[in-house]
Amino acid sequence: MKDGMPNINPDQLNPPDTERLALPDEPQHPPRVLMLYGSLRARSYSRFLTYEARRVLEALGAEVRVFDPSGLPLVSEDSEKHPKVEELRQLSLWSEAQVWCSPERHGAMTGVMKTQIDWLPLAPIGGIRPTQGRTLALMQVCGGSQSYNSLNQMRVLGRWMRMITIPNQSSVPKAYAEFDEQGRMLPSAYYNRVVDVMEELMKFTLLTRGRSAYLVDRYSERVESAEALSTRVNIRSI
């Protein structure tokens, strides 16, 4: 770990204890994490931060996939079968947790970030909602002083997408000064905060993934489903 993650103190990096967070009959495979970033630039600090966080997650025992937004079209009915759209949706269905990382541009998240989220529907795909019940961690990078506008917007979206958005979050100001030429994050309190956020995401994921279906079970939807079933049975009996 020392060569691959020089900023980490291995004696203080503690993989989550599954026995303390999950019941014996709950999933035992590594938590599945999808990561999204919001910039297409060659030197993209949101991508650098995402991959730095990925290393932490993998050290903590997660299985991680990062979606490359290059080539993802804008949202339209004509593009629903686009390969990048289908890839993104399948990754979301696969995931048990997600990390969203956006730059802040003009006081808001980027269009690249919002387009990815917009392509994830609330409606089920093959009977499964692609975001509901999944845990979510949020990060942003800033070109200047520290800000939280993108984080606040993504937190609203996380709730809207019925995700379990964890309390902790990461905002990295003056990101150009926090990464070396190879795109690796320098040691700092900001780096340590990223580790904090990934640790918390892992714990919340282990705590909730075996119970997510129950946690998001809703009275209104049960009533609607019962009414739909009743209607269907009555039509067949005519």
Rank of each mutant, 00 (worst) to 15 (best):
S46Y: 02
G61N: 05
L74I: 08
E80K: 11
W94R: 05
G133V: 11
F67A: 06
H106M: 11
L49G: 12
W100Y: 13
I128C: 04
I128E: 14
E77N: 12
E86L: 15
G71D: 14
L57N: 01
A123M: 13
A108P: 05
T135Y: 12
Q146A: 11
G127E: 12
G133E: 02
D68K: 12
L136T: 01
R134N: 14
T131H: 06
S147Y: 06
V75T: 09
E52P: 00
G126K: 09
D68R: 11
S70Q: 14
Q140P: 00
M113Q: 13
A108Y: 08
P124R: 01
S102A: 12
Q153M: 15
Y51N: 13
E63S: 13
S92E: 02
G127D: 13
S76Q: 11
A97F: 09
E52T: 15
Q98I: 14
G111T: 10
M154P: 01
T131K: 03
V75N: 04
T115R: 10
I117C: 10
T115P: 05
V75F: 00
G107A: 01
F67P: 03
C101E: 04
S95G: 13
E86P: 03
P69G: 00
G71Q: 12
E87S: 11
E58I: 11
E63I: 07
I128G: 02
L60N: 07
S147G: 06
A62H: 03
L74N: 11
N149V: 05
A137Q: 04
A59C: 07
E58P: 08
A123L: 14
G127P: 06
V75L: 14
C101P: 00
L91M: 15
Q90V: 06
T135I: 05
F48L: 07
L136K: 01
S95V: 06
D78Y: 09
W100V: 12
S79A: 15
V75G: 05
P73L: 03
S150M: 08
M154V: 08
Q146R: 15
P73S: 00
L72K: 04
E104L: 07
D78A: 15
